[in-house]
Nucleic acid binder design. Structure first.
Lengths: 202, 202, 202, 202
DNA sequence: GATGAATGAGAATTCATTCAT
DNA sequence: CATGAATGAATTCTCATTCAT
């Protein structure tokens, strides 16, 4: 095999491992993920996994990072023409929808205290917007609202952090409490998003 | 030993077990709590724990329930004279302070999907205020604000649910992200609480 | 308390322990009998049991001995007027009925290889009839049959041993195989008893 | 290692596990068999056993089934020329001999009330000969005897069930009662087999 | 006489990881 | 590259027994 083909093959296997792990995490949660379960899912032996990853944690981290990126890509720079309040509402709503689509993963990601995971999930430190695009986008929208006079003057990054945390809280609880009706879910989401946006208003 | 003294002794051991469990949960989290670790912490044999509790889960549940009660007791019926916005600010702030004082426990409690734990932590279902005093108190304060004209008309229970979720989200992230300065913490809390209260205003 | 009363009391407690143990063995089998389960059943502490018995095995042995005696008392010296075949049929049938009434105990007794239990259950050694009344009675009936010309000449003790073993085998299997209908049970018993008696006939 | 060799190796280990388990069962009985004891016997770690078997029960069942098959293969369709009484005597005698060669296993098998084991040991239900070859063979021999006029008319399956139970009873007791001399053993076996065959005769 | 605390050994099972082949 | 054998430590829980009080 040529070096290129080998690398491609190697890459493929890595992906299969990640896919298998993702499926398991999605189905039964990170806690129930075992290296053997990945192997079983792939129809491979458990040992081989250590050829591609140095530990189970590395796999988990990789899966969670991917999912995280999928989820936060809902928060993107808004159409410049769109008023800030609408832009934020749109962003938050689709972020929430994304997150609710992968409950197990979202909670695993956002509740993880692992250094590796925090490396891409931490948002609260001052200046975090410099390394967290989603935070930066949200802060930018807030800033836009302030400039346009729609929102009251406020530290935009701080507000963005508080808002993302709030939204995270609602999603996390919705993912944990199983018995909530779809209708109630929608009401809660609306209520919280409205609360946030009104809270920003001048 | 007299019966009384024996009972006292028994009660003490139970407490020591709970304390040890609480310490471990606080140090390394519920996931890492094992019956053996409790025994080790107490310098006892593992078996004896089953003299006092019928299962590990019973211990966990007991610890978490206790901590939960400590934390939510911050949200109590407010002074009738106090304006609703102030009352809510006070409640939320001391709730947050309580929760930040036991980071590991708070997160364990609020992130637990166990039926036993959800039995006292679930808040999102419609009508939850009937069984959740803290939720009821918060909703009552919101209602008071609406009646007094301070707040806009809104479904008080729904708003209370959205607010508690929001606050939970911030606390949970603060507990997870270790490197946040105290100053930044305070700013975030202020910012979120203000956002919420302004969001309620008429 | 007078010495006599004390002894009486002590005797009563012993009996309560045995009763409790008997009930548990009957309900869930010897394997599932634990000292603690006895204590629970009696509403006493586990420790006290060791005041009255030196070990769990001693209790088991005592219970099994009692039950054994109840069961084999079906095999008693027959009415001298009754023909040997009838006498044996009567004996065996009521022995079987007794045994089927306490399935768990009977199997525990007869399947026990413990020295203590074998001390009263062993029947196969040559000369066992000298120490095993039931065996002696059965052998006597066989002898009677031989003398009366009803049965062929045969070593009566040996035949008695073979017969009791045969009957034990049927009972044991009936106790183990749960799905056998009452009708089938009766047929099997009849069939075996008839086989035995015809086998003895001249 | 080649695939073939590996498979062979794997097969060998499985066999070693089964052998070790069989040895322990033979020495101390099924009740005392533990996964750890197997591992100890093999000088292996306990965990590895779960590489080859999914549970302790699977091992037990496998051992018992194997032994059972070895034992009952004594009861096979008889030479058509041989008279029924001789055929049955031969069958039963070699069945007994087989069983006495593995006392502990035989008793474990026949005294087991586990569903898994009963799946191949139950014989008493009406119609069992359809699924139990040994029973069918014995019933066939009885039938042959009836047709040839050697035996009295009798429900052949029922008789076969009663007979196997009888023989089981004798074997079980012989296995339990250790002190019986070889001579006495032989006498008892002869006596019982003769009793049975005479019991069948016309 | 009676309690209940306490131990220590035992049970089955699972798992991440390593490594010879 | 890939396998599967193997380990060792971990898990919860049960139990007979002892003993101070």
């Amino acid at each position: 095999m040529s070096k290129a083909r080998q690398q491609k093959h190697s890459h493929e296997i890595r992906n299969r491992i990640l896919k298998a792990a993702a499926r398991i995490i999605s189905d039964v949660g990170v806690e129930a993920l075992s290296v053997r379960s990945i192997a079983r899912e792939m129809d491979y032996s458990a040992g081989i996994i250590y050829h591609y990853f140095s530990s189970k944690d590395e796999i988990i981290e990789s899966v969670l990072r991917d999912r995280y990126n999928e989820i936060i890509q809902a928060i993107t720079p808004s159409d410049t023409a769109m008023p800030a309040d609408e832009a934020i509402q749109t962003s938050l709503t689709s972020y929430i929808e994304n997150a609710l689509r992968m409950p197990s993963e979202y909670n695993s990601i956002m509740q993880s205290a692992s250094q590796k995971v925090l490396a891409f999930t931490s948002i609260l430190a001052k200046g975090s917007q410099k390394i967290r695009p989603a935070l930066a986008h949200l802060a930018a929208d807030i800033e836009k609202g302030i400039i346009s006079g729609l929102f009251r003057p406020i530290d935009a990054e701080l507000a963005a952090q508080a808002i993302i945390s709030a939204v995270f809280g609602l999603i996390a609880r919705l993912n944990i409490e199983k018995g909530v009706t779809e209708e109630q879910k929608a009401s809660l989401i609306n209520c919280q998003v409205e609360l946030i946006i009104r809270g920003l208003k001048a």
